[in-house]
């Protein structure tokens, strides 16, 4: 495999001028073909090991482009879907019924998710006030893209929320990494700070209308950056 100059520099975590100098000074094994420099990966790896240096190719390849985690809220909500008429009169019952609706997840994952959601609720309530709760597992659940499932309850219940108001809607946030978790959480919180949006939620909107509304919020957020 042919690596570019800057990739090699990154693998060794040095600046490009340093790599150039090392080549000039003959400190690093390199093959010169005409004016070009060619690196042999195996030789280079051995050299790095001999010098007690860290050399990792995989890290460079796995590094996501910066746009990757900026996955949209609307997309995640679309994947999670909007579920209505969730029954139950306790936190656990509501959660159990809501998780059961997440048919895009295989049953064992659903069971695990339920356990984790419950244990998170025991730690402290995810009811953030004004009738909204954001149940989520404490650590990311691997596999797949992050999802946010919106679940409207049949009857508002006491969720031990911070303002003691009964909760009527759950946004279940299931993500594969801390980064995307925080990213989505902060975007969701931004929307929920808006009074109009809350009033809009109280009208139990249709999925399409909800996603459209979310998309306009996101546009505003993106414009600010």
């Amino acid at each position: 495999m042919d690596l570019t100059f800057s990739q090699i520099a990154e693998c060794l975590s040095v600046a490009e001028p340093t790599l150039e100098r090392w080549i000039r000074q003959g400190r690093i094994p390199v093959e010169r073909v005409g004016g070009e420099c060619r690196f042999n990966l195996a030789v280079l790896e051995r050299w790095a090991r001999d010098h007690n240096m860290h050399f990792s190719l995989s890290e460079v390849e796995q590094k996501k482009p910066p746009g990757a985690i900026a996955d949209g809220l609307a997309e995640a909500m679309g994947r999670g879907g909007v579920h209505r008429d969730i029954g139950g009169d306790s936190i656990n019952a509501v959660l159990k019924n809501a998780v059961a609706r997440l048919t895009m997840l295989p049953p064992p994952v659903r069971d695990e998710l339920y356990d984790r959601l419950v244990s998170r609720e025991q730690l402290s309530s995810t009811g953030i006030g004004r009738g909204v709760a954001i149940p989520h597992p404490r650590s990311p659940i691997g596999g797949g893209m992050p999802i946010i499932a919106t679940a409207f309850l049949r009857n508002p219940i006491d969720f031990k929320a911070v303002d003691d108001q009964p909760v009527f809607v759950l946004f279940m946030l299931i993500s594969d990494s801390i980064d995307s978790h925080l990213h989505l959480l902060s975007r969701l919180a931004f929307c929920l700070r808006d009074d109009d949006f809350l009033a809009f939620l109280r009208r139990y909107p249709e999925a399409d209308a909800l996603f459209k509304r979310i998309a306009t919020f996101e546009k505003r957020l993106d414009d600010r950056h």
């Binding site: 060794l12 975590s13 040095v14 600046a15 340093t18 090392w22 400190r27 690093i28 001999d50 010098h51 007690n52 240096m53």
Partner: peptide, 18 residues
Amino acid sequence: LDRYRRELMVQTCWQQGA
């Protein structure tokens, strides 16, 4: 410090019997 250490490792390779 990070780069200095790398440089030192590269410059003194023969002393480690590489």
